[in-house]
Amino acid sequence: MLTRKQHELLCFIHDRLAETGVSPSFEEMKEALDLKSKSGVHRLISALEERGFIRRLPNRARALEVLRMPDKGGSNIVPLRVPAAAAANDVVELPLHGRIAAGTPIEALQGTESLAVPAALLGPGEHYALEVSGDSMVEEGILDGDFALIRKTDTARDGEIVVALVDNAEATLKTFRREGQMIRLDPANRNYDPQRYRPEQVVVQGRLSGLLRRY
């Protein structure tokens, strides 16, 4: 039997995955459940994981998978119908567009290399890859040297991690938020400050859909 908050969080994660294919951020989960801190989200996720409702996907930023849902009465468990995963040798060659800053914006490079990515890591839509430079997104599990898998789009909702092109010259990987008449790009590292820009200074070039890490 789940607590009310556990059930609310499970449904929120399930609905967001069904809608976008990307897990909500901890900040989004905190706001959706009206919690005071992210530590409450961590406790709820750990409880759901221990009970076998969700699992964390390795080597992917903030990635969660819903394994099962309670029925409407809340007492029985209904297994989810999970689509067959792509074959292990099914890979997609994504264009690798250089390095993206997870710190101070750096020049947006347009490389000609490609990166072989397991198709199972990608959702629908057109994607490209960027190598992460910097440590300002470490609290979202995005580390220096990781490869960010980006779904092309020019729109974003508050709380989504995006590639933002600033002043048509520099690109950065940050959490997108609207703050009054400004756009705020938030790091996920307490050592870095948010960056604020006028809307005309910021162009969204994609949303984070996965992460690839080499060992």
Rank of each mutant, 00 (worst) to 15 (best):
R51V: 03
L115H: 01
Q181V: 09
E27H: 13
K174C: 04
T3Y: 03
G141P: 06
A119S: 09
Q181F: 12
A148S: 07
A88S: 15
K72D: 14
A148G: 05
I13P: 00
E50L: 11
G206C: 04
I150N: 01
L121C: 07
A120W: 11
V82D: 06
E93G: 05
L17S: 05
V117T: 05
R184I: 08
E160W: 09
G206N: 03
S39V: 10
R51M: 12
T104P: 02
E49W: 09
T153E: 13
G206K: 01
G134L: 02
H7L: 08
E179L: 11
P118M: 13
Q6A: 13
K72E: 15
A119E: 10
L57N: 11
D146K: 01
Q6E: 15
E107V: 14
Q6D: 03
E31G: 03
D186E: 10
H127T: 06
H7E: 09
N89S: 15
L121N: 09
K174T: 08
R177S: 06
F147Q: 04
L115R: 07
A18F: 04
S209Y: 03
A86S: 09
E31Q: 14
S209M: 10
G21W: 11
D71T: 12
R51F: 06
R196M: 07
L149R: 01
G123R: 10
E126D: 14
E160S: 09
R16L: 08
V166K: 00
T175D: 05
L9D: 04
T172Y: 01
A47R: 02
P124I: 15
F26I: 10
G180Y: 05
A169M: 10
N189T: 13
Q201H: 08
F12D: 00
A129E: 00
R151H: 08
D71W: 07
L67A: 04
L67Q: 03
A188P: 03
L17V: 09
Y128V: 12
T20N: 04
R157H: 13
E126H: 13
L48E: 01
H42P: 00
G123T: 14
S114D: 05
V166F: 01
V203A: 15
L96P: 01
A101L: 06
R213I: 02
P70Y: 06
T104S: 12
E179S: 10
R207T: 15
G40H: 10
A61T: 14
E28F: 08
